[in-house]
Computed example of a mutant assay.
Amino acid sequence: MKLLTFLIGPRFFELFLHGKETEQVIARKDDQLLQHSTIELERYFDKPPQQLPRQNAFSLAWVLLLFILTFALNLLTLLHVLPSLSPPARAAAFFLPSIVFIISNLTASYLISRGFNSGLTIYSLVYNGLFVATILQLINVALSWDTRHVILMLISLAFILSCRSLINGGSFIVFVLYCRTQRITSIARSLRLKSRNT
């Protein structure tokens, strides 16, 4: 746990644990969920979307962009050290993993914006995977004295460390908590209505 907290950052890790607890409360759908919401809060989030204040999702967009750039640099470096492939095979080896990676990250971003902790789980896996891959490839190209790819991997490391800074930043955390609160109040409101009608 301490290693994971160190790798991904303490604030993101706390946000993830809070989301895990929230998911357990939501899954039970009992009176305990109502303790995490108030009628005033539910009325506030019951307004039409255009009447609610716009949330700053730029941090989410930046994280997504930096993930994609880090992934692309790692994949290009990996393809360089692999045995020579035919042009179609090389194109497939680049574009197929890239498409899967982009779709999974877009899905994670969508889940985060809907208040689901599974989005943070995907972000955590992506971040840790890219960080480890970048460090390993940096060591590999440094040992082979490949200056050009050392520079690329240092840029990749700068990108992934920037991601760490963003996902532990106030803007990202406030956005996630806002979306999470919106989801909780929506479910709590439906529970209150159900209990009134029974």
Rank of each mutant, 00 (worst) to 15 (best):
L96R: 00
F116S: 05
V100P: 05
L125Y: 10
L106K: 06
S124I: 07
S118I: 14
Y123R: 02
F101G: 01
L106D: 06
L111H: 09
F101I: 03
G115A: 11
L125E: 07
N117W: 08
F116I: 06
S118L: 14
S109Q: 11
I103Y: 13
I122F: 12
S98T: 00
T107S: 14
S98I: 00
I122V: 15
F95Y: 14
L125V: 13
L125P: 08
S113D: 13
G115E: 07
L106M: 13
Y123L: 05
S109H: 08
I102K: 03
N117E: 11
S104M: 14
I112T: 09
V126D: 00
S98P: 04
A108V: 03
G115M: 10
S124H: 11
F101P: 04
L106Q: 09
V100F: 14
I112C: 04
I103V: 15
S104P: 06
A108Q: 03
L96F: 14
G115F: 12
G115H: 13
F94L: 02
G115V: 10
L120H: 09
P97Q: 01
I112Q: 03
S118Q: 13
P97A: 01
F101E: 00
F94K: 02
S104H: 10
I102D: 02
S109A: 15
R114D: 07
L111N: 05
S104V: 08
L120W: 11
I102W: 10
A108L: 06
F101N: 01
Y123V: 03
A93K: 02
L120A: 07
S124L: 15
Y110V: 00
F95I: 01
G119Y: 11
G119V: 10
S124V: 06
L125G: 13
S104F: 10
L111P: 05
N105I: 03
I112W: 06
I103N: 07
I122H: 08
R114K: 15
S118F: 15
N117P: 08
S118A: 11
G119M: 08
A93R: 01
L96A: 12
T121P: 05
S104N: 14
S118H: 11
A92F: 10
L111Y: 12
G119F: 12
Y110A: 07
V126A: 09
A92W: 04
I112E: 02
F101R: 00
S109E: 12
L120D: 05
A92C: 07
P97Y: 00
I99T: 08
P97M: 00
S124C: 13
V100Q: 03
A108S: 08
Y123W: 15
S104W: 09
